[in-house]
Design a protein around this nucleic acid. Structure first.
Lengths: 217, 217
DNA sequence: TCAAACATACCAACCGGTCGGTTTGTTTAA
DNA sequence: TTAAACAAACCGACCGGTTGGTATGTTTGA
């Protein structure tokens, strides 16, 4: 794992077995982490189970003891790690923000500094997986829709609170603007990946910050 | 091909062989079209050569007569069809526009009406391929960078002309704003695909049109 | 006639998944 | 205390099917 924010630093001894079978839980967690990074880099369909078990330091037998098949492994990994990423990087910082526009700007700047564990070379994990599997796989589809809903609502709620606090223009629709903000961010990250050029991100960020300012009263 | 704009309606008798070998050119074109739609729907790595030759109505022998390998076929298909899409939908309409902001709005609305051959179920071809292969494959990388450069410059040039014509604010950087516009559009299309929900596009479009208005003097 | 164009049969490599068997750790009972 | 009994965890060889690519022969058109 290159990321710190994308890893689940669970105390590893609070599983359903109540502290027993610690070894099994460790293996399961290692498989999830290995699966996530392999899927993050290669995509789900190109992710190799042999590579995953090699990274996790176990074998096919272990994998199929903990998960019924590749699909279930991918679902579990995506749900856990991508959900954690959106929660820690977007939802939590926005939940406490008095000035939502400044908070959003700070999140973008944190991305530009590389402080969120998103490798420009591989792009955004949410983006990668949803692009590959949306419209094809119902299970992943459900995860993406749910994550996006929580993500957009967090931004929209922050904007609404900003409106009542007088920090955001009252004549804009928070839901619409939140959708555009999330989509734009996704688009910029994907553009950086497409061009492999960080300057694209800086240029887009300059214009994006101008847009944020235009939302002030 | 579901699209009309994505097809190259070349008169098919102006190839390098100067009118001779018409049959061979037709097969080559059929292979390119089949390869593009298969890659568009499945991604490059998951695209099956057997499926491509079946759609093109020929066999492996023909394919490997015209192209050295799968990679070269994919490069040729991507360069031709995605380049044509960006040219016809973005560059040409912007080249003649007196009011660039209105032209950009019209392009977005044309997308929303489904008039550009981009199936929401499969997303934007440029987006799909660049997400899958950027940072991994140097050949495709080169194509994506070049296409993006022409795309962004077309928008930036239109904005600059709009500035001199008094239709666009003079205190914005056309290059930065153009980058954000292209990236946002990409992000919205990808969000529609991720959620499989056209309402997301409508919400984002509403806010996006507001942003465009904020660019007027 | 001859080369371009195309078809058919085929191969080696790979991948997801299976299966019989082994190791490790916990529970039970004398 | 300890050893038998049991179950969870793990191993790695193996299988059926698929895929990109090749070898070889046939057709077509100038």
């Amino acid at each position: 794992m290159t990321s710190d924010v994308l890893s689940t630093e669970a105390p590893e001894a609070q599983a359903e077995t109540d502290g027993r079978h610690v070894r099994g839980d460790r293996t399961r967690q290692a498989l999830l982490e290995a699966a996530f990074s392999e899927i993050y880099e290669q995509g789900f369909r190109s992710a190799r189970l042999n590579e995953i078990v090699a990274r996790a330091g176990c074998t096919k037998g272990s994998l199929y003891h903990h998960f019924p098949d590749k699909h279930a492994l991918g679902l579990a990994a995506a749900d856990e790690f991508i959900g954690a990423y959106i929660r820690e990087v977007w939802i939590e910082p926005l939940g406490e923000a008095a000035d939502p526009l400044a908070a959003i700007r700070a999140i973008i700047e944190r991305h530009a500094e590389g402080g969120v564990g998103v490798d420009p070379r591989f792009g955004c994990p949410y983006q990668n997986l949803s692009q590959e599997l949306s419209g094809i796989d119902a299970g992943f589809q459900e995860i993406f829709t749910g994550l996006f809903e929580r993500w957009r609502n967090a931004v929209a709620d922050a904007l609404t609170r900003g409106q009542t606090a007088g920090a955001v223009r009252r004549d804009i629709d928070p839901q619409c603007v939140a959708t555009l903000i999330v989509a734009s961010h996704q688009g910029v990250v994907s553009m950086i990946k497409a061009t492999q050029d960080l300057d694209v991100g800086h240029a887009a960020a300059t214009a994006f910050f101008g847009y944020l300012e235009s939302l002030r009263p």
